[in-house]
Each structure stands twice: as C-alpha cells, then as structure tokens.
Design a binder for these strands. Structure first.
Lengths: 335, 335
DNA sequence: CTGTTAGCGCTTTCAA
DNA sequence: TTGAAAGCGCTAACAG
C-alpha cells in the first residue's frame, strides 16, 4: 500500500503539498496539483485513516452498545444509527452486550481504547459505573431506552407511560371494562411505566383495577403463555388483555387460541413495540408502535451534535412519542 | 488522557519499559514493574489503540458488509460474527449495503481506508469489482451466501440444493404428489438451487413437474400472496407448496387461509430459512433451517485463520448443511 | 535488565 | 505558493 511519501516522490512535491491537495486545506499551484492527482490515480492511493485518526484525534467511528442485535427491536434501532452514520461519514462498531454487565464493561473499555468519537448505549441495567470511564475521558455518550442515574449524558426515551395509556384507552373506547394487564414486575423500567399508563387510563375512565388481573411475566413468549394460562384460571370474565410487549402478546394470543378462545371475538389482545412479526401473526396484532428506526437516527443526531458541532451544553432528555397501530386483534367485546 | 510518556515519567522509567510491561514482551525488574503498574492505576491509563494500530499495522477490527441488519436472517448472521469477534478480541464495523452496489462500494473503500484486518461480505450482486480493491490491498475477505466470480476469496455457502431436496422429500414422504413450487426467477442464485433440489427430488420419486405450478415470485410477502392467488386460479389439485423462503411461505399461507383453504388440512406449506417468525405464525411453519448464527461464526473463524494464523493457502469453499424443522404447516394430504 | 531512538503515515506550524 | 520538520502515541531494534 502506498503512502503519502510515495505520492510525494512520484509527483515531485513535498508530502505537505500532497496533504494539502488531499484535504483542500491550502491552495496548491495548478501544475503540482495535476501531478499529485495523477500520482494518486496511478498508485491507487488511499489515505491511511489510522494515521489520520492519530494525528487529528478523531476516528469518525462510534460505538453502538445494545443488548442483542438479533432482537428485531434493537435491530431496527441499530439500522437507524447505521443509516444516519453512513450519511455523516461515521462508521459504527457493533457491540452486543448480551444483557451482561461485564460484557458492557468490556466493550466500554474497548471503545475507549479505540478512541471512538462517541457512543450510543442501550443499557441493560440502571447502573452507570461503566459509563464513567468514558464520560470522564470526555467521550460523548447518549443513552436510549433506559435512563441512567447520576450521569451527565443525553438521553432518549420512548413515552412508555403515554403508550400504556394509549393502549388502554383504545380498549376502553372499544367498550371493554374487564381488562387484564401483563408486564414484568420490575419497577422503574420501561415496562412499569406502561403499566402506570394502564392504571392511569383505567382510573380516568372510572374503571377499577383488579390486582388479580395484573400478571407479572417476563418479557418473552413464555411469559405471555404463562400469563394467559393464569388469567384463564382465575375464571374472571376478562374481555381484553394489554401485554407490555408484542412477543408476550403473541404468547398470550396463541395460548388463548389453544384454549379455544377466539381473538378478538372472545378476548381482545393489544401489545407494545410494533415489531414487524406482529403484522404476520393471525390475527394481526394491534400494538403501540415505538419509533425504533427514528430513535436510532435521533440518537445519532444527538451524538453528532456533541461530536462535531461541539455542543457542550447541559444534558438533554428527548421523549419520542408512540403511535397506536390498530390491526385485527382488538374489537368491541361480545355482548 | 494520559499517554505512555506520562506513565514513564511518573514511574521513572523509559517509555520502552512501560511498553514492555504493558505487553509482557520482555522481562522487567520487579521494582520497576511495580512502579509502572502503580502509575497506570493512578492515571487510569489505557493504551491508545489507534497508535498501536498504526505501529503494529493491525487494527483488530473487521468489517461486516450485509444487505440489512434488520432483516432477521442477516441479523442472526451478524450476531454470530460479533460473538465470535468478541471472543477473539476483534471489533466489527457494521455496514449495511441496502442491497445497493454503490453503497457496497463506498463501504469497501471506507473499510480499506480504516485498515481493517479483514472483511466478511454478504454480496448483493454477483459482481466482484468492488472487492478487488480490498483483495489487491491484501485484506483477507470471506463471502457468505452468494459466490463471487473470479475472485480468490474464501466462501461459505449453505447447501441450497440439498435443502430444496430435503423440503421436497419431506412433502413426498408425507404422501403428496401434486406439488407446487414458488421461488424467484433468477438463475444462479441461492433460490434457483433450491428449485433445482425440488426438481431433483421430484425426478427421483418419479413425479412429473408441472411447469405451470412453478411460480416465480420475488422473495417477499407479496410474492407469496401473488403466488397463492395464481396457483389457486390454475384450478389444479395442488396439495402442497414449497416456497423458496419463509416470508413468501407465510404470504402463501395467509392468502390460502383468506381464500378459505386450511393449512395443512387442505394444502401443506413448507418454507426455507427458518426465521423465528415462522414459529409464531399459525400454523407454525415447517421449514428448512439455515444455520445462520453458525454461518456467522464460521465466517469469522475462516477470516481469523487468514488474519492471525497467516493462512495464505488457496481459496476455500465451505458448505453448511441445512436442517428440516417440521412444525404444523405440513401434513399428509387429505384423501 | 534497561534506555535511546527511529519510525508507523499523516497534518500543520514555521520559515522561506 | 511551497517545503522542512515536529510530533500524534506507540513498538521494537539496537546498544548498553
């Protein structure tokens, strides 16, 4: 691979001149300019970005730390980040944390070592220790999905409370009064806010919340299955179920169907996330959509403002709105 | 951020000594070793990987060029690559080509500029021009999914022909004789090999292939929809359909159901890919699974052998076997 | 066992 | 308008 020296020699100019024509950072005489361009073409020269990074103290690379890129939700976010990065000429290093604190930590180290210009971080836990090393080193960081306590970083969140409210409101407007809710037990998590939105909508409609119909399941298919079984066993006349995420909602639907209940004729089901899978199941799942791709793009934009435009103002929090996507799994209750 | 010089000064040793304790590349006296370690801890020193890369001519970073990381298939491959990379201490730069040749080209340039140690490439087209720059520069490259013509690179493919055979064989063994097949028209693509496998199984079973029942649809949901409509219109007594990929298979199923046909009671449907979505649709889709995660891991391993172990032998081609996953969308024909 | 020093490939100041 | 040269942070050959 040829270097700037090779070009300089071939074009009979100094390396400085080559650099200047390369970057257009100082006028260069037409003659020499020609010769340099010719040499570059002849040797198929491409500047060494590693050397540039060392000199400029800028890598045009960011890190994206997410739990799992094969989860459709995060995949979409990652795509938003990558797309925006491509536009801006910034590469992104993909880091799956596997929801593992040590791995998050390790990646933070790697990213710091590699001197990335910034990091987008979807935290698994609400701990912020691993982020300190980066922020202390002055690396801009924006978090998404979950807020980090006591750290001065930009944060992007989805309006989970509003989304939970929206979902519940939809069911209530259809005429349902016997509602159940399925979500992980954790507190201060995105899911808990969704439940809070559920309660808020119920209260507002003057509907009592039967605590026996709030089931705590993990955010997976099996959690939905268990929830449906449990709810059916209570024997209570439920006509609609709000699941804290789509995968659980699908678990709920499938189990309901397996038990002979029709969705939505007997029981309506609504999810949260808007994963594309939801459009293909039968019946197609009504859900509260999270703007995942946009979230990725916005996160990148936030980061870029700090990286490039040198924004160094106070920490910012941006809330993204959800959108109700009505499909076939919700309908008015049978009467 | 502190540098090796700061450490050297604080520990009252030379920078060389610091480097040697850092890399354990030459014995260092206990006393000095101590002092260096202390200084590192005190200043929270972390070596600058950019400088190391420049010096060592090695970035411990690879590029992963895929059409779209939000496609579940590629997402899984990407995960395999990232996971294996993490184990080996290699970072991966995520590059979505969007199935766009220019974007592929641009990324190849970026990766070359960044001096990545290798590239894993899932090509969109069968053109190999953009790869030339990299291989000419001596960057190891392994391709997956699609073979690249006239380039001396390692290739990983899935046994599409065998998979198509496997799927068809499954239907035949269930007792079906009136089979239809849905796949893109392209030749020399993975899909065309699946069709070839279909034909092979049919021939072997002494079953004639009705060319009117080979439908060419694009690899999307809508392609499946169109296919089902078309096949139904022929009025022929089809009892089973082999779709070249799962998304199409789901389109086929949904359309069949919308037209009042039961799957699998009236018509069996089998797909190809094994996307997780298939497990959640109703009925759960029988499919030929491609080892996606393993493919990612294997691709990385192949690359690592060239990167690290300096394997410089001839181009290798590795074929990954498919696996039949029988679920609920296939059954013996009604009689 | 340890230190000095020449680069890796580039950018940019300083001097012409 | 141009070139010489210092230096980004590190490694490793060379010389003690």
């Amino acid at each position: 691979m040829s270097t700037i020296k090779d070009i300089a020699r071939l074009a009979r100019v100094s390396t400085a001149t080559v650099s200047y024509v390369l970057n257009g950072t100082r006028p260069v005489g037409a003659e020499r300019h020609q010769r340099v361009m010719a040499a570059i073409a002849e040797l198929q020269y491409r500047p060494n970005a590693v050397a540039q990074s060392l000199r400029r103290k800028q890598t045009r690379t960011i890190g994206l730390v997410i739990p799992d890129n094969s989860n459709p939700f995060f995949a979409e976010v990652a795509k938003g980040v990558e797309d925006a990065g491509y536009e801006a000429g910034v590469s992104v290093i993909l880091c799956n944390s596997d929801s593992n604190f040590d791995r998050e930590l390790r990646y933070m180290e790697v990213l710091r070592d590699k001197r990335v210009d910034g990091v987008i971080f979807i935290a698994t836990t609400a701990k912020a220790d691993h982020v300190r090393g980066l922020t202390a080193a002055g690396v801009p960081l924006v978090t998404f999905y979950r807020q980090l306590p006591d750290v001065d970083v930009d944060t992007l969140v989805v309006d989970n409370l509003g989304g939970g409210y929206q979902a519940t409101r939809h069911l209530i407007e259809l005429g349902h009064t016997a509602l159940a809710c399925v979500a992980p037990a954790s507190t201060a998590s995105p899911s808990s806010l969704r439940v809070k939105g559920f309660r808020q909508a119920m209260a507002e409609a003057g509907l009592p919340v039967d605590e026996a119909l709030i089931y705590h399941g993990d955010n997976r298919f099996s959690g939905g299955r268990d929830a449906a079984e449990h709810l059916l066993q209570t024997g209570k006349p439920i006509t609609a179920i709000f699941a804290g995420n789509d995968v659980m909602a699908i678990g709920v639907m499938r189990t309901l169907q397996a038990q002979g209940r029709r969705v939505p004729a007997d029981i309506s089901v609504i999810g949260f996330d808007g994963i594309s899978l939801g459009a293909y199941v039968t019946p197609a799942l009504t859900s509260v959509m999270q703007p995942r791709y946009e979230a990725g793009q916005t996160a990148f934009r936030l980061l870029l403002e700090r990286m490039r435009d040198g924004y160094a103002g106070p920490q910012r929090t941006i809330t993204l709105e959800t959108r109700l996507e009505v499909r076939d799994s919700t309908a008015p209750p049978a009467r």
